[in-house]
Design a protein around this nucleic acid. Structure first.
Length: 504
RNA sequence: GCCCCGUUCGUCUAGCGGCCUAGGAUGUCUCCCUUUCACGGAGAAGACCAGGGGUUCGAAUCCCCUACGGGGUACCA
C-alpha cells in the first residue's frame, strides 16, 4: 500500500489538511505501507514562500512521519512537482499523439469573455467541452498547418483533454460507493498551461502512477473532478488507484467550510503552528503556540469523521493505526467543536509529566513580559499546583498569573471579602507567620500549624480563608492557599499580606 | 443555472431490517467530595432518527420524491 498527501504550498497547513495527512499516514502505518509527501507547486501565481517548510514542520509536530518526500528523498524523487516539468511535458506529448489531448489557442481573456456573454444570454456555467470546442480556436478547428505556424510564431497555447462524447464514467469511492457522471458534465480541462507547467489534474495522475500510489485519500472537494481523473487514467491506459473522498470539516457555528476567518472570529486556531504571512506580515496563531498538545489535537482530529466502532476515544497513535479502517469513515461533514478539543487537551495534559511543560512555560513567561528568573524547581512546583486546573499549556500562566507576579485584586472579590474582621485576622496571621521558622516553611508543616492557629484563636473560616486567598492571589479560585504560600516562600507571602493590609 | 455528495441528541458519533421505549462521548444542569477553584464520583435533561411517500409481518436502517446543507462548475489546488 502506498499513499500520499499532496498539498499545495499556497499557505499554512489547515486543520483539514492535517486530518487528510493523518488518515493517509495511519493507513500506511497500519498496512506497513509507505506515506509520501508530495509538494504540488505547479501554480506559480499562488505560490507562497515558506509554506512548504511550514507544512513539513506542522506534520512533524503532529507526529506524522513521512517516508518519501522533499526532505526524505525516495525512489520516485524529486517529490516537488516544480522539479518534474520534463516528465509532465513528456506525458502530455503522448496524450497529444494518441489523440486524447489537443492544442487550444484561446486566451484566458477571450474565454472569460465567452463565459460572460453566455451568462448574459442566460446560459450559466459555460464549459469548454465537446459541444463548444468546435467554435473555439484549437487543433480541431484549425488546420494542422495553421496550428504549426501559430505555435512556431510563439503564440501561447494550452493542452486540453479530449473528453469523449456521450459516455458515463463510473468509479467506486471507498467511502461513498459507486459514482456515475456523464461526460457531458466534464469539460475539456486544461492539462498543460501556457506557462508550460501542468495543472493539478495532469501532474497528479502522472505522479500517482509513477509513485505507485495505491490509495488516493483526499478531501471531498475533489470528488467532482474524480471522473476527469478516471478519464485521464484511461487515456494513459493505466489502472487507477482506489479512491476515498473525505467529508469536509465545517465551521463550528452555522454552515460552510472551516476557514482561517472563522478561526480569527472565534479566537480558535485552525493552523498547527504560528504563521506569518510573508506578504501582508499578518500573524496567525497556531495550536502549538496556543497551548494545545499535538497528541490531543491528533486524537481529536482523527475522530472528526472516523470512529473505531467502539467506545474508545482516547487513543495513542499506535492504537489509532491498529484500529483505523477506511470503511469506518463517515460521509457527512463534521463541525469543528473546540469544546471537545479542549477536553482532549485537558485529558492529555493531566497525564503528562510536569517537566514536559517547562520549556513552554518559560517561553510564555518571556514572551509575555513576566519575570524570567524563576528556578526550574519553582516552575515545576507551580505547574504541579495548576495541573488539574488547566486546559491549555499556557493556562499554567494565564490562569495563575499571581504565581509569577504581584496579584491584581479582582474588584468583586475584594468588595465582597475585604472587611475589618478579615483585616484584623490577616494582621494577626502576618505576625504569626513572621515568627514561623523559614526552614519549616513547607505545606506539610504550614498546614497543621495554620489549622491550629485558627482553632486556638477561634477565627471563623469566612474571616480568614477568603482574605488570605485575596492577599495571595487576588482572585477567588485556584490551588490551596497554604500550598501557594509554600510556593511563594515566607518573604513573598508576608509581603503580599502586608500589601493587602495596606490597601484602603 | 447545471452536476456531484450529504442529512441520528447543541456538537462528534454508534446503528449496516427485528437486540432501538435509539447507545456512547462532549457540552449543559443537579448532587456528593472539597474551608475556594479544579479534579474525581453519582445522576438528570437532551434525537417524534430532515419531511413525505412506498417495499416489508416488521425500517433510523432498503427504494422514490421533496426540502435543506455542502462541494464543484478556472490556464487554483
Amino acid at each position: 500500500m502506498v499513499v500520499r498527501f499532496a498539498p499545495s504550498p499556497t499557505g499554512p497547513l489547515h486543520i483539514g489538511g492535517v486530518r487528510t495527512a493523518l488518515y493517509n499516514y495511519l493507513l500506511a502505518k497500519k498496512h506497513g505501507g509507505k506515506f509520501i509527501l508530495r509538494i504540488e507547486d505547479t501554480d506559480q501565481v499562488r505560490f507562497v514562500p515558506g509554506a512548504e517548510e511550514y507544512i513539513m514542520n506542522a506534520l512533524e509536530w503532529c507526529g506524522i512521519r513521512v517516508d518519501y518526500g522533499v526532505r526524505e528523498g525516495g525512489p520516485a524523487a524529486p517529490y516537488r512537482q516544480s522539479e518534474r516539468s520534463d516528465i509532465y511535458e513528456r506525458y502530455a506529448q503522448t496524450l497529444l499523439a494518441s489523440g486524447n489531448a489537443y492544442l487550444a489557442f484561446d486566451s484566458a481573456e477571450s474565454l472569460d469573455d465567452t463565459r460572460k456573454k453566455a451568462e448574459a444570454a442566460g446560459n450559466h456555467g459555460w464549459q469548454y467541452n465537446y459541444k463548444t470546442r468546435m467554435e473555439m480556436e484549437n487543433s480541431f478547428t484549425l488546420s494542422p498547418e495553421v496550428v504549426k505556424s501559430r505555435k512556431e510564431a510563439g503564440e501561447s497555447y494550452v493542452i486540453r483533454l479530449n473528453v469523449p462524447e456521450n459516455r458515463e464514467v463510473h468509479f467506486f469511492d471507498l467511502i461513498r460507493g459507486e459514482i456515475i457522471v456523464h461526460t457531458s458534465q466534464i469539460d475539456d480541462k486544461v492539462l498543460m498551461k501556457s506557462d508550460g507547467l501542468p495543472t493539478y489534474h495532469l501532474a497528479n495522475i502522472i505522479d500517482d502512477h509513477l509513485m505507485h500510489v495505491t490509495h488516493v485519500i483526499r478531501g471531498e472537494e475533489w470528488l467532482p473532478s474524480a471522473p476527469l481523473h478516471i478519464l485521464l487514467y484511461e487515456a494513459f491506459e493505466w489502472t487507477p488507484p482506489s479512491f476515498a473522498h473525505l467529508p469536509l470539516i465545517l465551521r463550528p457555528d452555522g454552515n460552510g467550510k472551516l476557514s482561517k476567518r472563522d478561526g480569527d472570529r472565534l479566537g480558535v486556531p485552525v493552523f498547527p503552528l504560528d504563521w506569518t504571512d510573508p506578504v501582508s506580515g499578518e500573524k496567525t496563531s497556531g495550536f502549538r503556540e496556543s497551548g494545545y498538545l499535538p497528541d490531543a489535537l491528533v486524537n481529536f482530529v482523527v475522530l472528526l469523521g472516523w470512529n473505531p466502532g467502539n467506545d474508545e476515544e482516547v487513543m495513542t497513535q499506535e492504537r489509532m493505526s491498529d484500529l483505523f479502517d477506511i470503511e469506518r469513515i463517515g460521509k457527512s461533514g463534521t463541525k469543528f467543536d473546540i469544546d471537545k478539543l479542549h477536553w482532549f487537551n485537558q485529558t492529555y495534559l493531566k497525564e503528562k509529566p510536569e517537566e514536559s511543560f517547562l520549556d513552554f512555560v518559560k517561553e510564555f513567561l518571556l514572551k509575555n513580559g513576566f519575570n524570567t528568573n524563576f528556578s526550574d524547581a519553582y516552575l515545576l512546583k507551580a505547574i504541579r499546583l495548576m495541573k488539574e486546573r488547566v486546559v491549555l499549556v499556557k493556562d499554567f500562566v494565564v490562569k495563575a498569573p499571581y504565581l509569577f507576579k504581584e496579584p491584581e485584586y479582582d474588584e468583586a472579590f475584594l468588595t465582597k471579602q475585604w472587611n475589618e474582621n478579615g483585616k484584623k485576622n490577616l494582621i494577626a496571621l502576618s505576625s504569626h507567620w513572621e515568627s514561623f521558622p523559614s526552614e519549616k516553611w513547607h505545606t506539610e508543616t504550614l498546614q497543621p500549624d495554620f489549622h491550629e492557629w485558627i482553632t486556638t484563636n477561634s477565627i471563623p473560616n469566612k474571616f480568614i480563608l477568603p482574605q488570605l486567598r485575596l492577599a495571595l492571589t487576588g482572585v477567588s479560585g485556584g490551588p490551596d492557599s497554604i500550598a501557594i504560600a509554600d510556593l511563594l516562600g515566607k518573604n513573598e507571602t508576608i509581603s503580599r499580606l502586608a500589601r493587602l493590609i495596606a490597601h484602603a
